[in-house]
Design a protein around this nucleic acid. Structure first.
Lengths: 335, 335
DNA sequence: TTGTATGCGTTATCAA
DNA sequence: TTGATAACGCATACAA
């Protein structure tokens, strides 16, 4: 039950013996105010503990400075790292991040966007889930900018940042073949997101052109435990694969652990493994996993640069595509 | 350069043929409005795509619904998990999280709190760093609630949530002794935060009462790489330790990897290891680390419950203490 | 239950 | 450069 604890520009003005406008101008970059007036205002503000009310400022300027980050499973290494990069870039650009967790229900991405509208966020960045078309249209109509990361949607209006998953997956086939592998497998979750499916299809397609069949297995959520289950499925086959491409590093870690500790499979001697994301753990020496590095910093930079760009929304093609970098480590022979 | 894209209550009122107040009341829980009026308002709002402006509402009510999360190194497993739990709990309580990254400079916690004040956040939750006393006083004076997680500060006013680190550390000595270990070591970073130091001191003190000396080593930031370095230091001693308590799981993972892969030390046969935090990776079978589980969900629940609690700030003693749970795994003999 | 009028803390406009 | 005044969108005291 808050009273009126915050000090207003009015009070500062009175103490400094100037008008509210003078106070406002003092805290508005690029406004004209005399050095003497500024000094008195700053002094009074300091003494009173005055801070500009961004709620009111946002109301006036119709620009809150808020950018919504909409994300599920935010504690997984890749997501957490992306959030870190995003908040940092946003702050550098003078914006502030509002974080919305969509772990609960399925329509919660829409709910999150509604929340973004209520707080008059200047923009929303969607890291997971797919919003309904009607709600994205509502955002855009309300002048709110939208960024979709790895969503691979074909909607016009939002900025779409994607990786070339299929092309990357193709490179894995080449690597496996060079390492002398012939019995390929793909380990995926059942999440079915565009990125994951693109990796799967890209891998299968590239293998097909080389005349190699691929055993595809899918299971559960995209996490460590699913990786273990997938290893149990693939390593108990009569025809055991000698190379596995896991859709993410988390799956790969689980897969490798089960392969080594449960099935006594030597990596890379008996089995080559490749992951995706280059999470921190991939570099840990227990895994030393060959994987694709997502250009997290570039993604964040690109997204924020587009958001703060004043040139309307017509910046030509609002779609950016990055090539993930293959990081060679010891989970694949040769290299 | 946003125009006037958002639809206001005024427009809804006109379309519904009622007054602005009627619209306001329709969206204010517990306000008196007739079913018929409500129906017409809701219909008009739906058609126009109206959403209450929380900036304006916050201005009126002097309550923004915003809670600031101030955190550094937010992509580390423990922090990321705490952020996830916090955002979830906040949303359940009808609040929204604003995330501020303080990775950059040292005074940035103060800067973050200033930002929180500017957005008139109802509360701030500090997960890392120590704010200056003057700035916390400013927050409190402005009616903003403050929660300090694992900061172990003695300030009055904020809610302080802490673990009993020292007591937990004492239990590790007992476990090591039971496992037959005699040459104890403590591996710490140079961060010097209250939690880490409490673990160190608690461990050393408990060992002393049992007449056992402890080799303490500190190095770098609190991460995986430091764990490796610490292993290099401790495992090249002429008198090699047979038990190591690492201040965090991240340090422990690095330590174990270096111990096994670089020094061919068998865990737990030749060396017992205990960590702290129970991050997800601690349960991965490459580590299977005995460690202390932080009650993350309870911490988040407690913090949010205190924040939304209407009963002034005089809820007696604003300090909560949790006992971390020792999770037994295979990095310690016996168990 | 409904409408009218007032105020929340800003910034933008305009005249001085 | 400065100050008075009008918005911004909403909630609420009060009168009807």
């Amino acid at each position: 039950m808050p009273q009126k604890p915050f000090v207003s520009a009015q009070e500062v003005a009175e103490r400094a013996g100037v008008s509210r406008s003078a106070v406002s101008r003092t805290f508005t970059p690029g406004a004209s105010v005399s050095p003497e007036t500024r000094r008195r205002v700053v002094e009074a503000a300091e003494a009173l503990g005055y801070h500009v009310n961004h709620l009111a400022r946002g109301l006036m300027r119709n620009e809150s400075g808020i950018v919504c980050l909409i994300v599920s499973e935010m504690s997984t290494p890749y997501r957490a790292n992306l959030i870190r990069a995003m908040t940092q870039q946003l702050q550098n650009a003078g914006k502030i991040a509002m974080l919305i967790n969509t772990d609960r229900s399925d329509g919660s991405v829409d709910l999150a966007l509604r929340q973004a509208i209520r707080y008059r966020a200047d923009a929303s960045i969607i890291l997971s889930g797919m919003p309904d078309r009607s709600i994205t249209q509502l955002c855009l109509k309300n002048g709110q900018r939208l960024v979709l990361i790895n969503r691979d949607d074909d909607q016009q209006g939002p900025l779409r940042i994607n990786l070339d998953d299929a092309e990357a997956a193709g490179r894995v086939v080449t690597a496996f073949v060079r390492a002398g592998c012939r019995r390929l497998a793909f380990a995926n979750s059942q999440a079915g997101t565009p990125s994951l499916m693109a990796r799967e299809h890209g891998f299968v397609a590239a293998a097909k052109t080389m005349g190699l069949p691929v055993r595809v297995e899918r299971h559960g959520p995209t996490d460590y435990e699913s990786g273990r289950v997938l290893a149990q499925r693939l390593l108990t086959l009569s025809e055991r694969p000698d190379a596995v491409f896991c859709a993410t590093d988390l799956l790969a870690c689980g897969f490798m652990d089960a392969a080594r500790h449960q099935f006594r499979v030597a990596i890379p001697d008996q089995l080559c493994v490749v992951g995706f994301d280059d999470i921190e753990q991939a570099a840990w020496s227990s895994y030393d996993l060959t994987t694709f590095a997502q250009p997290v910093e570039m993604i964040a930079r690109e997204a924020v640069a587009w958001l703060v760009n004043e040139s309307g929304q017509a910046a030509g093609d609002d779609s950016v595509r990055f090539q993930p970098n293959l990081v060679w480590r010891s989970s694949v022979r040769g290299g």
